[in-house]
Design a protein around this nucleic acid. Structure first.
Lengths: 307, 307
DNA sequence: ACAACATGTTCGGCCTCTTCGAACGAGTGC
DNA sequence: GCACTCGTTCGAAGAGGCCGAACATGTTGT
């Protein structure tokens, strides 16, 4: 419908401003070019060339066609590249969804290593909170989820392995009223104080983990924000133990033993076994390495950057 | 590089799930289809068909190609349409730039009439303030300007005619200090009070018409906003007489005679004589009709909508 | 003004690529 | 097992692209 040769013809005519020169540039006979030009006009049922003057020129319609055809040919070239890529086993794009409690910084060197492969795969990394990761996998918004919490739900073609377990600590600011209550803390003491929860802006405004019914809440956009909020005494709640180790040691947060403690949380890596490409396999291989898994589970210990 | 026939082939294979049926649907011999399919694979240097099972299937690469090719073919079809349109004299798109003092509402029925022609021309109507209209024409951002003020500048291929003259009135809120000053007002009395000016957010933050040097200003986004601001006593300045007739009559604005009055302003319709298309000609014909010109010049008389 | 040159078109013939039909091997279903 | 479908290979026929020759028209140089 619009071959590469035809575009080359149009461009040659536009640039050289003559059929003969275009023919010379393309290494063809002038008669061939003349014939092809007329055929092109017939196909589009439009006057593409202004033959009134000595050397013919592109009409506005011809200019439009040339300009847009250039864009189209670029599109086709890119498409060709993508097709080759998929044929060689690399996905066209890979959508990785992590739970929000995993920190993106730890994935950065892995992304850099992936880029170094030169696969051409379009990487898309987003995060979800709570059950959002499983939903993303189920609904096809994700090809691979990392750090999904709770038990894997039933889902066709689902495969997974455990990334590790995350330990939690109930901690409050030393200036918070709960800091002075005798341990272990009972539910009826905690429920009177506001809980800080991580909430997604778009989906899943519903349930939150470790929050008691009827308890007032402060929703913040990330686990990092939650740590900061609790350090400043804006509310209480469970925090990843390894990420607040320094804050606990320096006394900016105080651990409070609870009457019913929170069990360590198992985090999963999961994907769909249909359409396993090379990029997916590569990432799974990375997450199976204990060193990366451990760093993801531990997270970044938060120092105080405000002083 | 990717013809319409080849797309039809891919789609037929995807939908029928077999070469023979695809051949039957396309009205060709099965051998032809087989040959074409292999050739396509050779051109893209990729396995597009999975021949391991009895009936062949599209590989992921083949699926990607089919899907994207569909989009490409649509693009080409649209392009073909646009080329035909341009060849038949209609522009691909027409960019009309009006001065801000003209009200868009008055153009609405004309736009509707233009749509009724079914030309397919993409209309783009924006507005500029002060000299912005001439600049837009000079820089190719506009194909047609309406309501341009001041004398037409020198510009190659420029053509224009007069739309009409707009009368101005210096008016203030009855609660404004200037309302009680004896007429005619002198410059040194006006300069002490803030002027309301219409300013563009992006370009041309510079000069404004009828503002004295050293006078404080309040810049608002439109002539409509300027009228409202002056009615509420936020500042003073010149207003189109016909648009504030009702406000003057009801006493919400008070006319003040000036020591040096503002002459009526001639508004122009202008365009470039190179590349005159049918859409441009149609719009020029509309603006040459005295009835539309008069309505544009007069604008919409502003009633009080706040009570 | 005239010659030399450049440009675009038409026409007949050559050649490549597409298309077809026939034949064959392989897989499927009753 | 038999009838059927499916995909492939191969040679022949046909269509379309391409070339060179010839020609009409327009431009440039002297």
């Amino acid at each position: 419908m619009l071959s590469h040769d035809e575009l080359a013809l149009l461009e040659a005519i536009r640039d050289s401003g003559s059929l003969s020169r275009a023919a010379a540039r393309l290494g063809k006979a002038p008669s061939t070019i003349s014939h092809a030009a007329r055929q092109l006009e017939g196909r589009f049922d439009a006057l593409l060339f202004d033959r009134r003057r000595y050397r013919l020129q592109l009409t506005p319609a011809g200019q439009l066609l040339t300009q847009e055809a250039t864009r189209l040919i670029l599109d086709v070239a890119r498409l060709s590249q993508r097709v080759k890529q998929v044929a060689s086993g690399w996905e066209d794009r890979l959508h990785i969804v992590t739970d929000e409690i995993l920190e993106f910084e730890i994935l950065l060197p892995v992304v850099r290593a992936f880029d170094a492969l030169g696969s051409g795969v379009n990487l898309r990394i987003t995060h979800e909170v709570l059950g959002g990761t499983w939903e993303a996998l189920r609904e096809g918004r994700a090809d691979l989820v990392v750090g999904a919490t709770n038990e894997p739900p039933v889902m066709p073609h689902l495969r997974w392995f455990e990334l590790g377990a995350m330990e939690w600590v109930f901690a409050v600011s030393p200036r918070h009223p709960l800091a002075k209550i005798a341990e272990p803390l009972q539910q009826n003491e905690v429920i009177r104080h506001r809980a800080v929860v991580v909430a997604d802006s778009s989906r899943n405004v519903g349930r939150a983990y470790g929050v008691l019914g009827g308890q007032p809440t402060l929703a913040v956009p990330s686990m990092r924000a939650k740590v900061l909020a609790q350090r400043d005494g804006l509310g209480v709640g469970w925090l990843p133990r390894r990420r607040v180790a320094t804050l606990l040691k320096s006394g900016q947060l105080v651990e409070k033993r609870m009457a019913d403690p929170r069990e360590p949380n198992v985090l999963y890596v999961a994907w769909r076994s249909d359409q396993e490409g090379r990029a997916l396999a590569w990432w799974l291989e990375q997450f199976r390495q204990p060193r990366l898994a451990k760093r993801l589970i531990q997270g970044l210990d938060m120092h105080d950057h405000t002083e």
